[in-house]
Amino acid sequence: MREFSLFVGGMGCRRCVREVTARLRDVPGVETVSANPGNCMVRLSGSMELEDVLAAFTGTNYRPELEGTGRGDSGGTAAGKSTP
Score class of each variant (00 low, 15 high):
residue 84 P to R: 05
residue 37 P to W: 03
residue 7 F to N: 11
residue 37 P to R: 07
residue 17 V to C: 06
residue 13 C to E: 07
residue 13 C to W: 08
residue 1 M to V: 02
residue 70 G to Y: 13
residue 21 T to V: 00
residue 80 G to S: 08
residue 8 V to H: 10
residue 41 M to C: 02
residue 61 N to Y: 09
residue 44 L to E: 05
residue 68 G to I: 13
residue 68 G to D: 08
residue 30 V to T: 01
residue 46 G to C: 01
residue 22 A to S: 09
residue 50 L to P: 06
residue 53 V to D: 08
residue 73 D to F: 14
residue 36 N to H: 08
residue 66 L to A: 09
residue 76 G to K: 14
residue 29 G to I: 00
residue 5 S to R: 13
residue 53 V to C: 08
residue 34 S to H: 03
residue 31 E to M: 08
residue 3 E to K: 13
residue 64 P to T: 02
residue 34 S to E: 12
residue 76 G to S: 14
residue 67 E to R: 14
residue 44 L to V: 00
residue 24 L to K: 02
residue 30 V to I: 01
residue 20 V to A: 09
residue 14 R to S: 13
residue 26 D to E: 04
residue 28 P to K: 00
residue 72 G to C: 09
residue 76 G to D: 09
residue 52 D to F: 03
residue 58 T to K: 13
residue 80 G to E: 00
residue 6 L to C: 06
residue 55 A to Q: 06
residue 38 G to F: 04
residue 67 E to G: 11
residue 52 D to L: 08
residue 74 S to M: 09
residue 70 G to A: 11
residue 36 N to G: 00
residue 15 R to I: 15
residue 84 P to M: 15
residue 22 A to C: 14
residue 54 L to P: 14
residue 51 E to V: 05
residue 1 M to D: 02
residue 27 V to S: 03
residue 57 F to K: 03
residue 52 D to T: 01
residue 68 G to A: 15
residue 77 T to R: 15
residue 76 G to R: 10
residue 35 A to I: 00
residue 4 F to E: 05
residue 41 M to L: 03
residue 3 E to M: 15
residue 19 E to Y: 05
residue 9 G to K: 07
residue 75 G to V: 04
residue 23 R to K: 02
residue 32 T to P: 07
residue 42 V to C: 03
residue 57 F to Y: 03
residue 40 C to E: 11
residue 44 L to R: 07
residue 9 G to W: 14
residue 8 V to A: 13
residue 62 Y to Q: 03
residue 50 L to M: 06
residue 67 E to T: 15
residue 65 E to H: 13
residue 69 T to H: 12
residue 53 V to P: 10
residue 17 V to R: 00
residue 46 G to D: 04
residue 60 T to S: 02
residue 59 G to V: 03
residue 77 T to E: 14
residue 39 N to D: 15
residue 24 L to R: 05
residue 5 S to V: 13
residue 49 E to P: 00
residue 69 T to G: 10
residue 43 R to A: 08
residue 33 V to F: 02
residue 25 R to A: 06
residue 64 P to H: 08
residue 43 R to M: 08
residue 7 F to S: 12
residue 8 V to N: 05
residue 38 G to V: 00
residue 28 P to Y: 01
residue 22 A to H: 09
residue 54 L to M: 11
residue 61 N to R: 15
residue 44 L to D: 07
